[in-house]
Protein backbone atom coordinates (compact mmCIF):
# COMPACT_ATOMS: atom_id res chain seq x y z
CA UNK A 1 0.00 0.00 0.00
CA UNK A 2 2.98 2.24 0.54
CA UNK A 3 3.77 1.76 -3.13
CA UNK A 4 0.22 2.77 -4.04
CA UNK A 5 0.67 5.95 -2.04
CA UNK A 6 3.91 6.63 -3.89
CA UNK A 7 2.21 6.09 -7.24
CA UNK A 8 -0.61 8.42 -6.24
CA UNK A 9 2.04 10.97 -5.28
CA UNK A 10 3.69 10.72 -8.68
CA UNK A 11 0.32 11.14 -10.39
CA UNK A 12 -0.46 14.18 -8.23
CA UNK A 13 2.87 15.80 -9.18
CA UNK A 14 2.44 15.05 -12.91
CA UNK A 15 -1.16 16.23 -12.96
CA UNK A 16 -0.29 19.39 -11.04
CA UNK A 17 2.42 20.14 -13.60
CA UNK A 18 -0.09 19.54 -16.42
CA UNK A 19 -2.57 21.86 -14.68
CA UNK A 20 0.09 24.55 -14.55
CA UNK A 21 0.84 23.89 -18.26
CA UNK A 22 -2.86 24.22 -19.08
CA UNK A 23 -2.95 27.66 -17.48
CA UNK A 24 -0.36 28.76 -20.05
CA UNK A 25 -2.52 27.88 -23.07
CA UNK A 26 -3.17 30.89 -25.25
CA UNK A 27 -6.48 32.65 -24.67
CA UNK A 28 -9.15 31.93 -27.22
CA UNK A 29 -10.01 34.64 -29.74
CA UNK A 30 -13.50 33.26 -30.21
CA UNK A 31 -15.66 35.33 -27.87
CA UNK A 32 -18.46 32.77 -27.86
CA UNK A 33 -16.10 29.97 -26.80
CA UNK A 34 -16.84 30.29 -23.11
CA UNK A 35 -14.61 27.47 -21.91
CA UNK A 36 -11.58 28.12 -24.06
CA UNK A 37 -8.93 25.53 -24.83
CA UNK A 38 -7.88 25.22 -21.21
CA UNK A 39 -11.30 24.91 -19.55
CA UNK A 40 -11.93 21.21 -20.09
CA UNK A 41 -8.39 19.96 -19.27
CA UNK A 42 -8.26 22.08 -16.12
CA UNK A 43 -11.63 20.81 -14.94
CA UNK A 44 -10.60 17.20 -15.62
CA UNK A 45 -7.26 17.60 -13.81
CA UNK A 46 -8.88 19.32 -10.84
CA UNK A 47 -11.37 16.45 -10.45
CA UNK A 48 -8.59 13.87 -10.80
CA UNK A 49 -6.51 15.64 -8.13
CA UNK A 50 -9.44 15.73 -5.70
CA UNK A 51 -10.06 12.01 -6.22
CA UNK A 52 -6.37 11.17 -5.90
CA UNK A 53 -6.06 13.09 -2.63
CA UNK A 54 -9.19 11.34 -1.33
CA UNK A 55 -7.82 7.95 -2.40
CA UNK A 56 -4.44 8.72 -0.80
CA UNK A 57 -6.11 9.53 2.53
CA UNK A 58 -8.13 6.29 2.40
CA UNK A 59 -5.01 4.29 1.49
CA UNK A 60 -2.96 5.96 4.25
CA UNK A 61 -5.63 5.12 6.85
CA UNK A 62 -5.65 1.50 5.67
CA UNK A 63 -1.86 1.43 5.86
CA UNK A 64 -1.92 2.71 9.45
CA UNK A 65 -4.60 0.19 10.40
CA UNK A 66 -2.60 -2.67 8.87
CA UNK A 67 0.49 -1.52 10.79
CA UNK A 68 -1.44 -1.42 14.04
CA UNK A 69 -2.83 -4.89 13.48
CA UNK A 70 0.54 -6.21 12.23
CA UNK A 71 -0.98 -7.36 8.96
CA UNK A 72 1.47 -8.48 6.29
CA UNK A 73 1.18 -6.50 3.08
CA UNK A 74 1.28 -8.17 -0.33
CA UNK A 75 4.06 -6.88 -2.58
CA UNK A 76 2.86 -5.00 -5.65
CA UNK A 77 5.79 -6.15 -7.75
CA UNK A 78 7.24 -9.65 -7.83
CA UNK A 79 10.93 -9.11 -7.11
CA UNK A 80 12.30 -12.28 -8.81
CA UNK A 81 10.60 -11.26 -12.06
CA UNK A 82 11.63 -7.62 -12.03
CA UNK A 83 15.10 -8.24 -13.52
CA UNK A 84 13.58 -9.91 -16.53
CA UNK A 85 10.96 -7.19 -16.80
CA UNK A 86 13.62 -4.46 -16.80
CA UNK A 87 15.57 -6.37 -19.45
CA UNK A 88 12.41 -6.49 -21.58
CA UNK A 89 11.70 -2.79 -21.11
CA UNK A 90 15.32 -1.84 -21.91
CA UNK A 91 15.27 -4.02 -25.02
CA UNK A 92 12.11 -2.33 -26.22
CA UNK A 93 13.52 1.10 -25.44
CA UNK A 94 16.66 0.25 -27.43
CA UNK A 95 14.48 -0.99 -30.26
CA UNK A 96 12.70 2.35 -30.42
CA UNK A 97 16.04 4.18 -30.58
CA UNK A 98 17.62 2.07 -33.34
CA UNK A 99 14.63 1.20 -35.52
CA UNK A 100 14.85 4.44 -37.53
CA UNK A 101 18.56 4.20 -38.44
CA UNK A 102 18.73 0.41 -38.85
CA UNK A 103 15.32 -0.26 -40.37
CA UNK A 104 12.56 -2.71 -39.51
CA UNK A 105 14.13 -5.93 -40.73
CA UNK A 106 17.44 -5.89 -38.85
CA UNK A 107 16.11 -4.25 -35.69
CA UNK A 108 13.09 -6.53 -35.37
CA UNK A 109 15.19 -9.63 -36.02
CA UNK A 110 17.62 -8.53 -33.28
CA UNK A 111 14.80 -7.73 -30.89
CA UNK A 112 12.99 -11.03 -31.38
CA UNK A 113 16.14 -13.15 -31.06
CA UNK A 114 17.61 -11.32 -28.03
CA UNK A 115 14.21 -11.10 -26.35
CA UNK A 116 13.66 -14.84 -26.65
CA UNK A 117 17.13 -15.62 -25.35
CA UNK A 118 16.69 -13.16 -22.46
CA UNK A 119 13.49 -14.97 -21.50
CA UNK A 120 15.43 -18.20 -21.27
CA UNK A 121 14.53 -19.86 -24.54
CA UNK A 122 17.28 -22.45 -24.92
CA UNK A 123 17.54 -23.58 -28.53
CA UNK A 124 19.55 -21.11 -30.64
CA UNK A 125 18.54 -22.93 -33.79
CA UNK A 126 14.78 -22.66 -33.24
CA UNK A 127 15.09 -19.12 -31.94
CA UNK A 128 16.86 -18.18 -35.19
CA UNK A 129 14.35 -20.01 -37.39
CA UNK A 130 11.44 -18.39 -35.57
CA UNK A 131 13.04 -14.96 -35.87
CA UNK A 132 13.50 -15.35 -39.61
CA UNK A 133 9.96 -16.67 -40.13
CA UNK A 134 8.34 -13.96 -37.99
CA UNK A 135 10.22 -11.10 -39.64
CA UNK A 136 9.71 -12.52 -43.15
CA UNK A 137 5.99 -13.17 -42.53
CA UNK A 138 5.30 -9.69 -41.19
CA UNK A 139 7.30 -8.16 -44.05
CA UNK A 140 5.30 -10.16 -46.56
CA UNK A 141 1.86 -9.56 -45.03
CA UNK A 142 2.26 -5.92 -44.07
CA UNK A 143 4.88 -4.84 -46.59
CA UNK A 144 3.57 -6.60 -49.70
CA UNK A 145 -0.09 -7.53 -49.18
CA UNK A 146 -1.18 -4.49 -47.18
CA UNK A 147 1.39 -2.08 -48.60
CA UNK A 148 2.48 -0.68 -45.22
CA UNK A 149 5.72 1.29 -45.44
CA UNK A 150 7.80 -0.22 -42.62
CA UNK A 151 10.94 1.62 -41.41
CA UNK A 152 13.71 1.25 -44.00
CA UNK A 153 16.71 2.59 -42.11
CA UNK A 154 19.20 5.13 -43.43
CA UNK A 155 22.04 5.11 -45.96
CA UNK A 156 22.83 1.87 -47.73
CA UNK A 157 20.38 -0.02 -45.49
CA UNK A 158 17.61 2.08 -46.98
CA UNK A 159 18.79 1.34 -50.53
CA UNK A 160 19.07 -2.34 -49.67
CA UNK A 161 15.56 -2.47 -48.20
CA UNK A 162 14.00 -1.49 -51.54
CA UNK A 163 15.22 -4.80 -52.98
CA UNK A 164 13.48 -6.71 -50.21
CA UNK A 165 10.25 -4.84 -49.35
Amino acid sequence: MGMALGFNGILIIVLSYLYWTATKFLDTTITTDYWGGDGFPRLVIALALILLIYDSIVTYKKLQRNKRENLQEKDVFEKPGLKLLFTGVILLALYVVIVEPLGYMITTALLVFIFMKAMGYKSNFWALIYTVILVAATLMIFGYVFGTSLPRGIGFLRELSFYIY
Binding site: L11, F25, T28, G37, I45, A48
Partner: peptide, 25 residues
Protein backbone atom coordinates in the same frame (compact mmCIF):
# COMPACT_ATOMS: atom_id res chain seq x y z
CA UNK B 1 -11.35 3.86 -11.84
CA UNK B 2 -12.64 7.42 -12.04
CA UNK B 3 -9.10 8.83 -11.91
CA UNK B 4 -8.15 6.49 -14.77
CA UNK B 5 -11.15 7.74 -16.76
CA UNK B 6 -10.22 11.37 -16.05
CA UNK B 7 -6.66 10.73 -17.21
CA UNK B 8 -8.14 9.17 -20.37
CA UNK B 9 -10.20 12.33 -20.90
CA UNK B 10 -7.05 14.40 -20.39
CA UNK B 11 -5.01 12.39 -22.92
CA UNK B 12 -7.82 12.95 -25.44
CA UNK B 13 -7.19 16.70 -25.23
CA UNK B 14 -3.59 16.45 -26.49
CA UNK B 15 -3.09 18.21 -29.81
CA UNK B 16 -4.83 21.12 -31.49
CA UNK B 17 -8.04 22.19 -29.81
CA UNK B 18 -10.79 21.70 -32.44
CA UNK B 19 -12.68 24.85 -31.39
CA UNK B 20 -10.02 27.50 -30.66
CA UNK B 21 -7.07 26.03 -32.57
CA UNK B 22 -4.83 26.31 -29.50
CA UNK B 23 -2.09 23.68 -29.07
CA UNK B 24 -2.59 21.70 -25.88
CA UNK B 25 0.02 19.56 -24.09
Amino acid sequence: ALVAALIGLLIATVGIDPISGVQRF
